[in-house]
């Protein structure tokens, strides 16, 4: 009877809510009063010039730094993550290229890294390769990713395939919020297109995605909402459908678009000072 009400609450409560986050390093204030939220199944692009505070904010969400003030609410509970592992156990993970995979072992070994399935043989825990291979194959094909062989070492796979393994692993082990830091920096056009598609599929499963990028076009292609940081504060928080490139550039640089050169406007580059 109360089911609908609960459901309503669940859907209105954001997955991640940042309230007046402050971070200072000595006299330097890296972040001031940063507030924004990420909903379930929502893709948020976090933009900002170098030094705007993106990295600091990302580290605070994924458990590398603790805020000096303000609250982080994850899944409706106030949390501070002291280490990346704590954040990971809560369901938050950052996917960096090549930092989360061991290229010297196969896809299955990477998929179950640190969470291997074992069976007892004479009381000794032995890797259950068969079960792990089956589950990896299922998870990867469910996600619509194609990897030639799961028995092949990851060093033979392309950047896009590696990213697919990381994202699928994250989803399989019950991840709720994924942070992607410049995910397509080293990928080709076709791989980037597939990567963007994969992000959509991940978010369709109710997972929140924060994507940090310098490439404005990608943000517009994949994000539901764009959050811009400038000099440690939120300079803009808009739905992608209700804004345009020029407005976003203005939020990033804080300058009127008319002051930018024609070239910078065309390329979507912020003005370098």
């Amino acid at each position: 009877m109360f089911q609908p009400a609960t459901e309503l609450m669940m859907t209105t409560q954001p997955l991640l809510l940042l309230e007046n986050i402050r971070k200072s390093f000595g006299a330097i204030e890296a972040l001031r009063d940063v507030s924004f939220s990420v909903g379930r199944g929502e893709v948020v692009a976090l933009l900002g010039d170098n030094g705007a505070g993106k990295s600091t904010l990302v580290k605070m969400i994924s458990g590398g730094l603790e805020p000096s003030g303000g609250r982080i609410l994850f899944d409706g509970e106030e949390r501070t993550f002291r280490s990346p592992l704590e954040a990971k156990n809560a369901g938050i993970e950052t996917v960096y290229q090549d930092l989360s995979l061991c290229t010297n072992v196969d896809v299955v070994a990477n998929f179950f890294m640190g969470r291997e399935i074992t069976k007892k043989v004479f009381g000794i825990p032995v890797l259950d390769e068969k079960t792990m291979a089956e589950r990896t194959a299922k998870a990867i094909s469910d996600a619509g990713t194609r990897i030639p062989s799961l028995k092949v070492n990851v060093e033979h796979l392309s950047g896009g395939q590696r990213q697919a393994i990381e994202l699928n692993r994250f989803v399989y082990f019950g991840g709720k919020l994924v942070l992607l830091d410049e995910p397509f920096a080293a990928l080709g056009v076709e791989q980037t297109r597939r990567g963007l598609e994969m992000i959509r599929r991940v978010s369709d499963q109710g997972i929140g995605v924060i994507i940090i990028t310098h490439i404005m076009q990608q943000a517009f292609m994949v994000a539901d909402r764009i959050v811009v940081l400038r000099q440690g504060t939120v300079a803009g928080d808009v739905a992608t459908s209700k804004t345009n490139l020029d407005d976003v550039i203005q939020m990033i640089t804080g300058e009127n678009i008319a002051n930018l050169s024609a070239y910078q406007r065309k390329e979507g580059l912020p003005r370098t000072v």
Binding site: L85, L99, L101, C102, T103, V105, M113, G114
Partner: peptide
């Protein structure tokens, strides 16, 4: 193979 990755895992 990759110390950072195993630590993160």
């Amino acid at each position: 193979g990759n110390k950072v990755a195993t630590f993160r895992a």
